[in-house]
Design a protein around this nucleic acid. Structure first.
Lengths: 333, 333
DNA sequence: GTCGTCTCTGGGAGCGCTTCCAAAGTTAGG
DNA sequence: CCTAACTTTGGAAGCGCTCCCAGAGACGAC
């Protein structure tokens, strides 16, 4: 008789009411007498009843599930070399935990992953999507939006501003960093950037140029946001511009690489060369010397993305957000 | 007529076959004529049909979804201060991408999170669970198993060995690390551990004792796996045992903290004091001096967990795995 | 007493799919 | 030509749930 998990029918039978009434109680709807409600609740408890989500989804067409899609290669070193990804998730989770939404995670931007996302989206299993755009432009963005599901972006893309997004004030942060170097009286400031096709690279470069004004041609070296890239870029820069006295690295990882190259080259930081990073990763306070860097509220970005999506799901019209960044002064500059 | 997404009924109608036949084609079952198959496939393509997963789940009771549950506080610093978590996910994702399984992520071990997991599990929405146990013991483990869903563990728990797990050879790695210090002729080796109630702490401590043999009382200081904890522990140890000449820190983060404390105390590494860490995090090669540490294949752990779960789902009987760790020699020891 | 109005309940319909069964068609063996 | 397989098909049943509607009471106003 009691094969498998109990159904609402069994709950109703035990409570001595109809299926409809039991359903009303379970979904906390009005128009149920106190007596009936109590009886159903009791039956639910006794049977250990948990509604079957698939059956519910079939009729309500909601799924209590949203996805975080991280485009970019599944083995992108940024995924693990920096805690960005994990922090965003923690932020998202904090907000979702307050709701009944569950988080589905989808990594990778290859054809196969894209197909699966779309399938999942269209097979109706996702109520909404958060897109974390690591690389520059990505067709995925369009795909998600075309499917009609509410979509929120983390960061902006190279091809225009999405309808709903959360971003850090990369430009403002970079400006503050370089202004600080300027105020310190640094004369020959060089910049190490991320990949050229990356929106973040552009934003941070813009901020850098904002600070530099229309002065002499700024020295810019493109790298890859990673430690090794920063290291190599710094070596090249030292070679090409031996008289440089300050470096603005667009990521802490690259700043760490620059620090290493400077150390090996015998330059003292900050006496000979000042170094500023960007991100304020947890270990930035522990480099030698401690790294002056631009803090961006990564966890908050995650939370705000989630909040925005929840609002969208609730029929709201959230406004996109640019979260403030701030310069954290330590000893490297 | 074509309101909303197409159903299999519409596909069948367009192909001129019955719903049953269409279903057979979609699920790639035998006993369908070539002509019928072609017609259905054509209709599927024309309509852009994607089966409704909820409806399918309702009858098949499978959901093509597994969960990664990370017990421990949702804002545990280990989640973001080290890339462990992200690496495991990348590893899992690599395997899952080859299947049709999707990944659901559940963080946090508080009452609420637990309830939700159970609900999701019992409401039939998860085909299996991977549990990543950050802290020592956790009732969650039992809960998941009781629900009857296939469960795979990452790491072992304090209360016995789970049925299916993947773990790193923490004990062996620690033994190798300390043996290396011994071989170098270090006389006064101290150990900085993780939290006492942690299985990893125990395993690595056992390995350390294995190497030390039954000699003099080993000097052990408990900390928290974090940089700051390592820093403080190192300061205390220097105070209590000024003559120490080697440190085995049970995590790279703590090793980094120890390095910082030693630098501030004016001790040279490795001349005065040798330092060995554990984890081989990406930045370990970039500390000053580069950190000798024990590498553990984190990504592989994720992959193996996923593989094991997939096997379980397929009715297999996988065997638990202890992945090898290896000592990576750099300059700090 | 009659008429609305509001509260509460039962039960049918149906979400989109798979699964089963019976029937029809096909083939080969005797 | 008949029988015993096998192949192929259509269609009914039903997964567990929500939604809707009709109807039964209860209650006050006229």
């Amino acid at each position: 008789m009691k094969r498998g998990r109990p159904t609402i029918e069994q709950v109703a039978a035990l409570a001595g009411v109809s299926r409809g009434t039991a359903s009303r109680v379970v979904n906390d709807e009005p128009y149920v007498s106190a007596a009936a409600r109590a009886a159903v609740l009791k039956a639910v408890r006794e049977l250990g009843y948990v509604p079957n989500q698939a059956a519910r989804s079939l009729v309500t067409r909601t799924h209590e599930t949203v996805a975080l899609v991280v485009s970019g290669e599944a083995d992108d070193p940024r995924l693990s070399e920096d805690p960005f990804f994990a922090e965003v998730i923690v932020g998202i989770n904090a907000v979702l935990a307050e709701t009944d939404l569950e988080l589905m995670l989808m990594l990778g931007a290859n054809e196969r992953a894209r197909t699966r996302l779309l399938r999942r989206l269209r097979s109706g299993q996702l109520d909404g999507v958060m897109l974390l755009a690591l690389p520059g432009a990505d067709p995925l963005c369009r795909l998600a939006e075309e499917s009609g599901a509410p979509t929120v972006y983390g960061g902006r893309t190279m091809d225009g501003e999405p309808r709903y997004f959360v971003d850090a004030d990369n430009r403002g942060g970079a400006r503050k960093a370089v202004e600080h170097l300027l105020v310190q009286g640094r004369q020959r400031i060089v910049t190490i950037t991320g990949p050229v096709d990356n929106e973040v690279t552009h934003a941070r470069l813009s901020g850098c140029l904002d600070a530099l004004g229309g002065g002499a041609d700024p020295v810019v070296m493109h790298a890859d946001f990673l430690e090794s890239g920063g290291y190599q870029a710094m070596q090249s820069l030292l070679h090409a511009h031996p008289d440089l006295d300050a470096v603005f690295a667009q990521s802490d990882n690259m700043a760490a690489g620059a620090l290493r190259a400077l150390r090996e080259a015998g330059r003292r930081v900050p006496d000979d060369v000042a170094v500023v990073g960007f991100d304020d990763l947890p270990w930035a306070r522990h480099t030698a010397p401690p790294l002056t860097t631009v803090n961006q509220p990564i966890r908050a970005m995650g939370s705000e993305m989630a909040r925005m999506l929840v609002a969208l799901l609730g029929g709201g019209e959230p406004t996109s957000l640019i979260l403030p960044t701030r310069l954290v002064l330590r000893e490297s500059a």
